[in-house]
Write a protein that binds this DNA or RNA. Structure first.
Lengths: 135, 135
DNA sequence: TGTATATGTGCACATATATGCACATGAGTC
DNA sequence: GACTCATGTGCATATATGTGCACATATACA
């Protein structure tokens, strides 16, 4: 089809729907906070660990770390299991990779379909901030 | 190496570093808000549009939409250019796909390296919520 | 049983973010 | 020039989120 990227085209509506569906707010939100990012960094480095062990190396209170860990598990970034009175958390590596692959698959048609401004040059003659615009 | 996924191993430290580097907070934060998600949906559907046109179809004030659009541009999800007194925004399709490919490339070693709890079964005998854990 | 340890939760508070109004700026039109 | 239209920004306010303390719960151990 020559007119796939026309405004409101079937192709555009389809990809909009697919992209919306795959935009997992819970997943992205969990990745935004710097403390949670640091927790992820440490769990990747050291492997499975309990709440106290993780909290000991960070400035926040244990209860705060506990809540961050629970949120990361709800976002399916971590998994947990009980070990006596402790709870062990570990990275859900395969799940994370699968989720990102799904997102990429949904988004990748945008490479051809959502070329900004149809690839047309800006006629601003350097007056606006469109530096990244025209290929 | 047989011990690549040992706690603190070189492989683990490397991937932790790579993953941290690729976790673009600005990018993820921009994707969290439901209003911004809706803006993305409409821009994918209709293609390039100015602030007023987008705002007209949404409940929020024009100024609010204007700020969301600016944030999405800073996150390199949208691009903009001036057209007279209007400012046109459009999806930065190729940039978005490239960014997600970079993220996936950085994360994909986690599929083998971060199998939760080393793939070992939980010995809870059904008492804890480790359903997604084993296998 | 009593005690110590690990974790989760209610609550109050601080900070961040989203929102809408009023107004300023910039660009087109008369 | 005066006027109109589109956009961006300062400000006050509402809502969401992160934080730490105190306490409750659950498990292990003497």
């Amino acid at each position: 089809m020559i007119n796939d990227n026309a405004p409101g085209s079937r192709a555009r509506r389809d990809i909009a729907k697919t992209v919306s569906a795959v935009l997992d707010t819970k997943f992205f939100k969990a990745l935004c906070d710097p403390v949670r990012a640091e927790i992820i960094r440490r769990l990747v480095t050291i492997g499975a660990a309990d709440v106290g062990t993780i909290a000991k190396t960070m400035t926040q209170d244990r209860s705060v770390i506990s809540r961050h860990l629970a949120q990361l598990e709800r976002a399916e970034i971590l998994m947990s299991r009980k070990d006596g009175r402790r709870r062990l958390y570990d990275m859900a590596g395969p799940d994370i990779v699968t989720k990102l692959e799904d997102i990429l698959a949904a988004v990748s048609p945008m490479r051809e379909l959502c070329v900004p401004f149809g690839g047309r040059e800006c006629n601003c003659a350097g007056k606006c901030e469109c530096g990244r615009a025209a290929a």
